[in-house]
Nucleic acid binder design. Structure first.
Ligand SMILES: [Zn+2]
Ligand SMILES: [Zn+2]
Ligand SMILES: [Zn+2]
Ligand SMILES: [Zn+2]
Lengths: 164, 164
DNA sequence: AAATGAAATGTTATCACATAACGTTTTTGC
DNA sequence: GCAAAAACGTTATGTGATAACATTTCATTT
C-alpha cells in the first residue's frame, strides 16, 4: 500500500509539544520568505504573526489588538491590526477561518495549498493539512456538476486524538 | 463504471430555470416537514424562508430584514430575523455559509448531510451537493491524522457551467 | 370557558467583526 | 537631497449578531 501525499501539523497542534519551537520556526521561516519575496516583515507585522503563533488556536482580530496594546503599552486601533493581517494573508503566512472569524498561522507557507483545517471541538486547537488526493477528489466532485474549481475551504470539526 | 451517490441542485441553481418552481417546492416541503416534526412554521418564519428562496444566491440577515420591512410595511428589528433564521437552521431548512455571512435554502432538508457548496464567483449562485463518497474521503483523511469527524463545511469556489 | 405554562414575538441596548477615507511618517530608488 | 511609494496613525462608520427582559400568542388542562 502506497503512502499518499498528506502533510499535516496535527502531531504538533493536537498534542503536547514544545510550542516555543513551533513559534520560533514559523517566525524564522516568515523572515526568510519575506526576504526572498522582497516584502517587508515590519515590526508590527511580525508582532501580529508572533501573537498568532502563541498557540494552535485561531485568534480573533480584536483579541490580537488587546494583546498588542498590553505588549506595547499604548492604544492600538483596528486598522493597524487588520493591515498586518492583510499583509500576512497575502503572503500566505496565516489563514482566516471563516466559521470562526479568526486567524491561524500557516505551517506550510511555501507550499501552495487550499484550506483544510481540523478543528477540535474540545480543546479548540486547529491543525492544518495539505492533502493532494483530497483536493483532487473535491475537484472531481465539482467537475461532475460542471463546476471548475479555483479554490476551496474545508473545515472539519470533531475531536483530535488527545480529546477523544 | 458505477455511478456514485451525488445529489446536487446545480442544474437548477446554475442554469436558467423556472425558479418559481424551486421556491414553491421548497415551501411546500418545509410545511410538510414542520407538520411531521410538530414544530410551527409561523408566518414570520415562512416569510423569511420565502425571501431566502427568492434566488439561489446566499442572502445576508440585514438584507432579509430590509426586504421584510418593505414587504410588511413596518419596522423589523434584527432579533426577529435572527430568530427566524435560528429556527430554519435548526430544522435544516437553510444553511449558513460562513465565508459569506449569509444564508441559503437547503434543497434536501430531509436528507442528512454535511455542508458542501459550489459558489460561483461570477454569477454568485450557490449550488449544494450531497456527495457520500467525498464525505468518506474527508473522514478518511481526518482519520489518518487521528481525528474523528462530527461535521464539516466545504465551500468550493469557482465558475459554474454557465459562467465558464 | 377560564386558568395555566410554554412558545413565540416585540423592544432596547449592546457586542463583535471589518473597512473607508484621509493625513502623516518612513522607506526606497533615483 | 528629492520624489514616489509604502507603511502607519486617526477618525468615523459600516456590517453582522446577540443578551436581556417585557409582552403576546398558543396549546393544554381543568
Ligand atoms: Zn496553510
Ligand atoms: Zn483537542
Ligand atoms: Zn443542505
Ligand atoms: Zn455562475
Amino acid at each position: 500500500m502506497r503512502t499518499t501525499a498528506l502533510i499535516s501539523n496535527t502531531r504538533a497542534a493536537h498534542r503536547d509539544h514544545d510550542h516555543e519551537r513551533c513559534r520560533t520556526a514559523a517566525l524564522a521561516q516568515a523572515r526568510g520568505l519575506c526576504l526572498d519575496r522582497r516584502v517587508r516583515l515590519t515590526p508590527s507585522r511580525e508582532a501580529v504573526l508572533r501573537l498568532i503563533w502563541d498557540s494552535h488556536c485561531p485568534v480573533g482580530a480584536y483579541s490580537l489588538l488587546e494583546r498588542l496594546e498590553a505588549e506595547q503599552g499604548h492604544r492600538i486601533l483596528p486598522p493597524t491590526v487588520y493591515r498586518a493581517l492583510e499583509f500576512l494573508l497575502a503572503q500566505r503566512l496565516i489563514h482566516r477561518i471563516p466559521s470562526r472569524n479568526a486567524f491561524i498561522g500557516c505551517p506550510f507557507p511555501e507550499v501552495p495549498h487550499h484550506n483544510l483545517f481540523l478543528l477540535c471541538r474540545h480543546c479548540g486547537a486547529v491543525a492544518e493539512c495539505c492533502a493532494g488526493p483530497l483536493d483532487q477528489a473535491i475537484a472531481a466532485t465539482a467537475a461532475r456538476a460542471g463546476f471548475s474549481v479555483t479554490d476551496h475551504n474545508l473545515e472539519i470539526e470533531g475531536l483530535c486524538r488527545q480529546c477523544q
